[in-house]
């Protein structure tokens, strides 16, 4: 079951990554503008999806009922039983509206999660600035024998190996402290018991797509870190992660970018609902 789910996630990641290429302009657009554009487009796309995955007639009917009850409260405000009944009907209608949104919400969750994973690579983390240090952590399968180092980080012009490898046997991890030198995307090479493994590193300023971890063959990790191919289940190396700094602006960063994106996409959806004839 888990293996099937992982295969599905990896396959869908391939699709999402292909689509993710369209997000390349994010790299050269101002951060706020690109996130706004993405949010507006997402809002409209979601709106269309909502239209086709929901029972629009039923939603329209409930909406009319809601409007009627709101107006009844205004028109017959002198009549307490009528207004109380209208308020009760309003609450019931609100619940029905929520119920009618469950299916489209569930259907949209799937593409939306993959989209969020793609966007997170751009807006959640910043690349490592030139001259800054970071920690690279490699997670192994099986035990680490303390007698000899089993893993090596091969030298690369883009980084300087400051210290490492440091093995943490209890966590099955090996760490390096490195300093970034050359801006751009680079592929770091690792060697473990004769096998070579790769991990991408992003160095520079501004907005770059950042993949903080090459994941293991686990559906959940694959979902969170979609850009790099997960390691095989039998691989000695299970995951390699790089500590990236978090973005720090009022619309980007761990918490704020998703809130901004959500609000703008929601506003765009509501703003365009009349244009596309969608009942929300």
């Amino acid at each position: 079951m888990t293996s099937t789910l992982t295969t599905i996630v990896i396959t869908l990641n391939a699709v999402a990554n292909a689509f993710g290429q369209c997000l390349a302009p994010i790299g050269w657009l101002p951060e706020g503008l690109s996130l706004t554009l993405v949010a507006v487009v997402t809002g409209i796309a979601t709106l269309k999806m909502f239209k086709y995955t929901s029972n629009q007639r039923a939603i329209a009917r409930v909406r009319r009922e809601i409007r009627a009850n709101l107006l009844a409260i205004k028109l017959f405000k002198e009549n307490l039983p009528v207004t109380l009944a209208a308020q009760r009907k309003l609450l019931v209608a609100a619940l029905r509206l929520l119920g009618l949104a469950v299916v489209p919400m569930a259907v949209m969750t799937v593409p939306m999660v993959f989209l969020l994973a793609q966007l997170a690579q751009w807006y959640q983390w910043a690349p490592i600035p030139v001259g800054d240090d970071t920690v690279i952590t490699l997670r192994l399968a099986g035990e680490i024998r303390p007698s000899r180092p089993v893993v090596k980080l091969l030298p690369h012009d883009a980084i300087e190996d400051l210290s490492g490898p440091v093995s943490i046997a209890s966590l099955q991890q090996v760490c390096w402290n490195v300093r970034a030198h050359q801006p751009g995307y680079h592929s770091l090479q690792f060697e473990a018991e004769g096998e070579r493994y790769e991990k991408q590193i992003a160095i520079g300023d501004g907005v770059m797509r950042v993949s903080p971890q090459r994941p293991s063959r686990d559906w959940y990790e694959a979902l969170l870190y979609p850009w790099e191919k997960p390691f095989d289940a039998q691989s000695r190396v299970q995951a390699i992660s790089i500590e990236y700094p978090e973005r720090d602006s009022w619309i980007a960063g761990t918490d704020s970018w998703i809130a901004y994106w959500f609000i703008v996409s929601l506003v765009a959806g509501f703003a365009f609902r009349g244009v596309f004839g969608v009942h929300l």
Partner: peptide, 11 residues
């Protein structure tokens, strides 16, 4: 996502 927003927000 906005889908959830549409649902929860509206209700």
């Amino acid at each position: 996502g906005p889908g959830a927003g549409f649902a929860v927000g509206g209700s």
